[in-house]
């Protein structure tokens, strides 16, 4: 990116070329939430509490978006059924 820019062409402040969907924050994660669909009653509290919109409602379930989930654990804490557990993220 640096190579393409010249000082005079720069905007006055840093403006992204993308929406925040371009920031794939999932690789910040050290703890990985795992959703046990057997225990889940689809109440949607995890989706409501997720501060990063990293849980998406599907047809009749909720899906954790690991591309964005930072592993904060709020969903696991709030789940009244204990359906979400946090496990150490294993990276290659």
């Amino acid at each position: 990116m640096k190579g393409q820019y010249r000082m005079k062409d720069m905007p006055v402040t840093a403006i992204s070329f993308l929406t925040t969907e371009g920031n794939e924050t999932g690789d910040w994660r050290s703890q990985r939430p795992l959703l046990d669909s057997e225990k889940c009653n689809r109440c949607g509290l995890c989706w409501m509490y997720c501060p990063d919109n990293a849980i998406r409602p599907e047809q009749d379930s909720f899906k954790i978006l690991y591309t964005y989930c930072k592993g904060c654990g709020i969903c696991a804490k709030e789940c009244p059924r204990g359906a979400i557990s946090m496990v150490t993220e294993e990276r290659k």
Partner: peptide, 25 residues
């Protein structure tokens, strides 16, 4: 002026390695 626009969302003031250039501006 150049502003946030719901029709064309962007992130302003986000992380950038061009920091020193924006400070110079």
């Amino acid at each position: 002026r150049h502003c946030l626009d719901v029709e064309d969302p962007v992130l302003i003031g986000g992380t950038t390695d061009l920091y020193i250039n924006f400070r110079y501006k």
